[in-house]
């Protein structure tokens, strides 16, 4: 009898071993002009994922620059009047203002008229001429976004586009909602804007691939191994068009109004907060590796980064030197100066 019990016990034990490879709940949907994937582990995964998806769909209606009923569009067409807003607008704007200051203007969310001139919103692409861009740049001024106790106003014809922080903010909100549902293990990707919650269920680190900026659809430059963090890449390859054999990409340099022409092919930022990771990646891409590294060393804002330069070099910040595996079959190598 004892033996029968002990055998049954062993069988139970083996079965529990089998179920240790816990299957996550995967949710995939379209929102914010991209595809979103939520991978959530744990008991409440189904409910939590559903709530998170609904939150993104709600935020999309507020933050969209193309939806004329969105709060952002209301601000843009208010002619300087104060529009009352919630934290969902205030938090991304405040983050953008802070990054604007830290990056000495490299992130600017008032470039909407310039982006429109290039056709990045309508997808009716063209190359605006110098004088047109100069005129449009006069409206690009972060100081014209005035925050008051209960609202936002954009004065002097300035218009905002939260595109450089909206997905990051949405990712942060998803992670917050998942936490509220006692989820301790999840990884989400909002069109390549990645954020993780905790570690994998077995305690190991998440593996997140960094795209090869020259063959982003098929190749990786390497893999990051991280615990809880937000990870966002900005690169010239993400949205661009060709006219007369020249490629123009969507990250405009606020100083010139032309696509940013720094030494970088892409930059990947790791930061605790999703909104900041998103905004910083755009800022660092425009700044170029040298100024971006200075900002890193200044510790005015805490982040880590993977820079991929036009010389096919990869530069890692000090804090992630042991958390990156280079794709040995790829075209990139570590920069000597930062070994």
């Amino acid at each position: 009898m004892k033996r029968i019990i002990s055998v049954l016990f062993i069988i139970l034990l083996l079965f529990s071993l089998c179920s240790c490879t816990q299957k996550p709940v995967k949710t995939q949907f379209f929102a914010m002009d991209t595809i979103m994937t939520l991978t959530v582990y744990g008991e409440n995964a189904v409910t939590a994922s559903e709530k998170a998806k609904n939150e993104v769909l709600r935020l999309e209606k507020l933050l969209s620059v193309t939806d004329e009923n969105s709060t952002v569009s209301q601000i843009n067409s208010s002619d300087g009047k104060v529009i009352s807003v919630t934290d969902d607008i205030l938090i991304p704007i405040k983050a953008a203002k802070e990054i604007n200051t830290l990056s000495k203007g490299a992130l600017n969310i008032t470039m909407l008229p310039s982006s429109q001139a290039w056709g990045f919103l309508s997808k009716d692409y063209r190359v605006p001429n110098n004088s047109e861009l100069e005129l449009l740049l006069q409206k690009a001024n972060m100081d014209n976004i005035v925050l008051s106790d209960n609202g936002v106003s954009c004065i002097n014809g300035t218009q905002i586009d939260l595109g450089s922080v909206a997905k990051g903010y949405a990712a942060q909100r998803i992670i917050d909602i998942l936490s509220q549902h006692e989820i301790t293990s999840a990884v989400i990707s909002l069109g390549g804007n990645v954020q993780t919650l905790g570690t994998k269920p077995d305690g190991s680190l998440w593996n997140i691939t960094v795209a090869d900026p020259l063959q982003s659809d098929t190749q990786t430059a390497g893999t990051l191994h991280t615990a809880q963090t937000a990870v966002v890449t900005s690169g010239a390859y993400q949205r661009n068009f060709d006219i007369n054999g020249k490629t123009y990409h969507h990250i405009l340099d606020p100083e010139t109004g032309y696509p940013s022409d720094s030494d970088l092919l892409s930059v990947t930022v790791l930061c605790e907060n999703g909104t900041y990771a998103d905004g910083l990646s755009t800022a660092l891409f425009v700044m170029g590796s040298e100024k971006a590294y200075e900002l890193y060393l200044s510790k005015e804002i805490i982040f880590e980064a993977v820079f991929i330069t036009k010389n096919n070099e990869i530069i890692l910040t000090d804090g992630i030197k042991d958390n990156f595996t280079l794709n040995e079959n790829g075209t990139y190598h570590y920069a000597e100066s930062h070994q």
Binding site: T37, T39, V187, I188, S189, G191, G192, V194, T196, K200, W206, N207, I208, T209, V210, A211, S216, T220, T223, V231, V232, T233, Q238, T268
Partner: peptide, 8 residues
């Protein structure tokens, strides 16, 4: 299965 997410 080794890769959890891909940056784009």
């Amino acid at each position: 299965e080794e890769i959890d997410a891909a940056l784009r």
